[in-house]
Computed example of a mutant assay.
Amino acid sequence: MKRVDLILSERELDPVLQAIDQAGCSGYTVMRHVTGRGPRGAVSENMEFSGLGANAHVIVFCAPELLEPLRSSLRPLLRYYGGVGFVSDAEPL
């Protein structure tokens, strides 16, 4: 099983969630209003409140054979809108 973690602007969630569905992944988890610090600096409380800098964390678990279709559909969106994505192995409990 693969785990895909995406951090992106909340404003861009809809096309990303559609891409996940189109890749054939059966589900995802979305956590809104995540804050933190990355290469572009920190997301402040003021940015989060206004919605201008609010980010979302999307977690997808998928079968290994779905990773390439998922990657192919997400890469152009992350390049265009911004955001990051990471893949790791996941093992059920």
Rank of each mutant, 00 (worst) to 15 (best):
C62E: 03
V87M: 07
H57T: 04
A90S: 13
L52H: 09
P15H: 07
A23F: 03
A63I: 05
R71C: 14
M31Q: 14
R71I: 04
A56I: 01
F86C: 11
L93S: 08
F49H: 08
Q22P: 14
G27A: 09
Y80M: 06
L13D: 00
L8Y: 06
G53K: 03
V30W: 06
L13N: 04
C62S: 05
L67I: 09
G24E: 04
P69L: 14
L78F: 03
I7E: 05
D14S: 14
I20H: 10
S88K: 09
D5N: 12
R71F: 05
P64M: 15
L6H: 07
E10G: 05
K2L: 01
E12H: 15
S73R: 14
S9C: 14
L93F: 08
G41T: 02
E48W: 00
E68Q: 15
L13T: 08
S88F: 07
P15C: 14
S50R: 04
R11C: 09
V84Q: 07
G82V: 02
R11A: 05
I59N: 08
V34K: 15
E10V: 11
S44V: 00
V43C: 00
A19M: 07
R32V: 00
A54G: 00
A54M: 04
G36K: 05
P15Y: 15
P76T: 01
V4Y: 01
E10Y: 15
Y80W: 06
P76E: 11
E10Q: 15
A23Y: 08
V43L: 01
H33M: 06
N55K: 02
V43D: 00
E48V: 02
G41Q: 05
A42C: 01
F49G: 11
H57V: 10
D21Q: 15
S26I: 14
S73W: 10
Y80S: 12
S88W: 10
E45D: 12
Y80P: 01
P92L: 08
V4P: 12
V60Q: 03
E91A: 07
A63P: 07
A19H: 11
R75S: 13
G24W: 13
I59L: 15
V34S: 09
S73L: 13
S9H: 12
P15G: 03
Q22A: 07
A42Q: 02
S88C: 12
S44T: 05
S88G: 03
L66Y: 10
A56N: 12
Y28C: 10
L17R: 11
M1R: 14
V4K: 08
S72V: 13
E68K: 13
S73I: 12
S88E: 02
G51M: 03
V60S: 05
M47E: 01
L52F: 02
V4D: 13
E45F: 07
G83H: 08
G27N: 10
K2S: 04
M47L: 02
G51I: 00
G36F: 02
R11F: 12
R40D: 03
H57Y: 04
L77G: 14
L66A: 06
A19Y: 03
V84R: 10
R3D: 13
C62K: 11
E91I: 05
V4M: 09
L67F: 03
L6E: 05
Q18M: 15
E10T: 09
R3N: 10
P39A: 06
V30C: 09
F49S: 08
L6Q: 10
V16Y: 13
G53A: 02
Y80I: 12
C62A: 01
A19T: 14
G83D: 01
G82Q: 14
F61K: 13
V16I: 15
L70N: 09
E68V: 15
